[in-house]
Deep mutational scan, measured.
Amino acid sequence: SDEEKKVRDQAKRLGVNTEQLLKWARRQGDEDLVRIVERLLRS
């Protein structure tokens, strides 16, 4: 999905993997991002 591509691009920009991005999203309190990243991790 578009959202998932955006998440992957953001992880690349930050230089982190998906698990690290999830931690980062939780720290930001970004519920939408957390949900998308969790979906990516499960897929």
Rank of each mutant, 00 (worst) to 15 (best):
1 S>I: 09
1 S>D: 11
1 S>R: 11
1 S>G: 07
1 S>M: 09
2 D>F: 11
2 D>Y: 11
2 D>G: 08
2 D>E: 11
2 D>Q: 10
3 E>C: 15
3 E>T: 10
3 E>G: 09
4 E>T: 09
4 E>K: 08
4 E>S: 08
4 E>N: 08
4 E>Q: 08
4 E>D: 06
4 E>R: 10
5 K>H: 05
5 K>L: 07
5 K>S: 07
6 K>M: 12
6 K>A: 07
6 K>S: 07
6 K>F: 12
6 K>R: 11
6 K>L: 12
6 K>I: 10
7 V>W: 11
7 V>Y: 05
8 R>N: 05
8 R>I: 11
8 R>T: 05
8 R>V: 08
8 R>M: 11
8 R>C: 15
8 R>Q: 06
8 R>H: 06
8 R>K: 05
9 D>R: 07
9 D>E: 11
9 D>L: 12
9 D>G: 07
9 D>P: 06
10 Q>F: 14
10 Q>K: 08
10 Q>V: 14
11 A>Q: 09
11 A>S: 04
11 A>F: 11
11 A>C: 15
11 A>H: 06
11 A>D: 03
12 K>R: 10
12 K>W: 08
12 K>E: 09
12 K>I: 08
12 K>T: 06
13 R>N: 03
13 R>G: 03
13 R>Y: 06
14 L>H: 04
14 L>A: 04
14 L>T: 03
14 L>K: 04
14 L>M: 07
15 G>W: 11
15 G>F: 13
15 G>C: 15
15 G>R: 12
16 V>R: 06
16 V>D: 02
16 V>C: 15
16 V>Q: 03
16 V>T: 03
16 V>K: 05
16 V>S: 04
16 V>W: 15
17 N>H: 06
17 N>K: 07
17 N>M: 12
17 N>P: 06
18 T>W: 15
18 T>R: 11
18 T>H: 12
18 T>D: 04
18 T>N: 05
19 E>P: 03
19 E>M: 12
19 E>G: 06
19 E>Y: 14
19 E>V: 11
19 E>I: 12
19 E>N: 08
19 E>Q: 10
19 E>A: 10
20 Q>Y: 09
20 Q>W: 14
20 Q>R: 07
20 Q>E: 12
21 L>W: 05
21 L>K: 00
21 L>E: 00
22 L>I: 03
22 L>Y: 03
22 L>E: 01
22 L>P: 03
22 L>V: 02
22 L>D: 01
22 L>G: 00
22 L>H: 01
22 L>M: 03
23 K>P: 01
23 K>L: 14
23 K>T: 05
24 W>S: 01
24 W>T: 02
24 W>E: 02
24 W>F: 02
25 A>W: 12
25 A>E: 00
25 A>I: 12
25 A>G: 00
25 A>C: 14
25 A>L: 14
26 R>T: 05
26 R>S: 04
26 R>W: 06
26 R>P: 01
27 R>E: 15
27 R>N: 14
27 R>T: 13
28 Q>R: 07
28 Q>L: 11
28 Q>D: 02
28 Q>M: 13
29 G>V: 13
29 G>W: 13
29 G>T: 07
29 G>R: 06
29 G>L: 14
30 D>E: 05
30 D>L: 15
30 D>G: 13
30 D>R: 12
30 D>I: 15
31 E>Q: 10
31 E>F: 12
31 E>R: 09
32 D>Y: 13
32 D>I: 14
32 D>L: 14
32 D>A: 12
33 L>G: 00
33 L>N: 00
33 L>T: 01
34 V>L: 07
34 V>K: 02
34 V>I: 11
34 V>N: 01
35 R>P: 00
35 R>F: 05
35 R>G: 03
35 R>D: 02
35 R>C: 01
35 R>Q: 05
35 R>K: 09
36 I>R: 05
36 I>N: 02
36 I>Y: 08
37 V>F: 06
37 V>I: 14
37 V>T: 01
37 V>H: 00
37 V>D: 00
38 E>Q: 07
38 E>T: 08
38 E>R: 04
39 R>E: 03
39 R>Q: 10
39 R>S: 04
39 R>I: 06
39 R>G: 03
39 R>Y: 10
39 R>W: 13
40 L>M: 10
40 L>E: 00
41 L>A: 02
41 L>S: 01
41 L>F: 03
41 L>I: 08
42 R>D: 05
42 R>L: 08
42 R>P: 01
42 R>C: 14
43 S>R: 13
43 S>L: 13
